[in-house]
Design a binder for these strands. Structure first.
Length: 264
DNA sequence: ACCCCTGTTCGGCG
DNA sequence: CCGCCGAACAGGGG
């Protein structure tokens, strides 16, 4: 499920526990979600610490605890987070539970394509230091995007939009939404894009990210009805603009929907 | 039973 | 070494 706007929503679910101490940590260290993570140290250091704050970069999240302790979370395909009552019943896929006196902070991930990391130290962990600017900031500008597109001329533009070191936080539905707004075929080779198409993709990327953060990211509501996302998973999906039936195919290894009338 | 999946990583290939 | 592609990961849902 999670792309950048959903990630933002899930991150905020744990704000309920900010300022409060973690009194217990429940996890199963051998689960795949903890691959290459020292869960013994995580438990020893986080129990007794309090949750201070959190931030998100693309699809990644970082939670800061007192005593120089950090937990990084990636939600993969099926990760979800919530604040549950302190006495809630832990279910099969509730892989990480941070117990507080008043509530429990829960990470659920049935498929475990997501990942939990731990870091102890006064500085941010190395794996947090991002290479790509956040799309919603000024650092994500035309020159950055142009350089990135130049580097991937041979790939279909849909695949390039899914690369996290360029389009941080964009996932499958946002990529289709962007290309539909920019009127560009998902399968088009990146080097074949005109200057106008590059500009349109840049503008649509900013627009879709902003809109998604204002709806899904804020209160988990849906983007406006005029967006492609409402049509893309339907068998008989139609273009919100002209009601043209959408086409579907696998592009860059992912299910892709587009409007044959709008996108060239 | 069979096929699908809003993500990332790795091995193979050119 | 670089970039691109498909498979693998694991489980639930249609």
């Amino acid at each position: 499920m999670p792309e950048l706007a959903e990630v933002e929503w899930f991150r905020k679910q744990w704000d309920a526990g900010r300022g409060d101490k973690i009194v217990d940590v429940r996890l199963h260290s051998r689960k795949r979600i903890f691959r290459r993570t020292n869960t013994r140290e995580l438990r020893e250091r986080v129990v007794g610490a309090s949750l201070e704050n959190s931030s998100a970069r693309g699809k990644r999240m970082l939670f800061k605890f007192s005593g120089d302790n950090w937990i990084g979370i990636h939600l993969g395909m099926t990760g979800k987070m919530r604040a549950a009552p302190a006495d809630f019943r832990q279910a099969k896929h509730d892989h990480l539970v941070l117990c507080q006196t008043k509530r429990s902070l829960v990470l659920t991930d049935s498929r475990q394509f997501g990942r939990v990391r731990f870091h102890h130290g006064s500085d941010e962990p190395d794996w947090w230091k991002g290479t790509a600017p956040e799309i919603a900031t000024r650092d994500f500008d035309r020159s950055f995007v142009d350089r990135f597109l130049d580097r991937h001329g041979q790939a279909p533009i849909k695949g390039v939009l899914l690369m996290q070191n360029g389009f941080s936080g964009i996932g499958n539905w946002m990529a289709d939404e962007i290309l539909w707004r920019a009127k560009v075929l998902p399968s088009k080779r990146t080097r074949k894009l005109s200057a106008g198409e590059r500009a349109a993709i840049f503008r649509a990327t900013k627009f879709v990210v902003k809109g998604a953060l204002e709806t899904t990211g804020r209160d988990f509501s849906d983007p406006p009805k005029s967006w492609l996302i409402h049509q893309k998973w339907k068998r008989q999906g139609i273009c919100p603009k002209h009601r043209t039936p959408l086409k579907h195919a696998t592009v860059a290894g992912r299910t892709t929907a587009w409007c044959p009338r709008c996108q060239k």
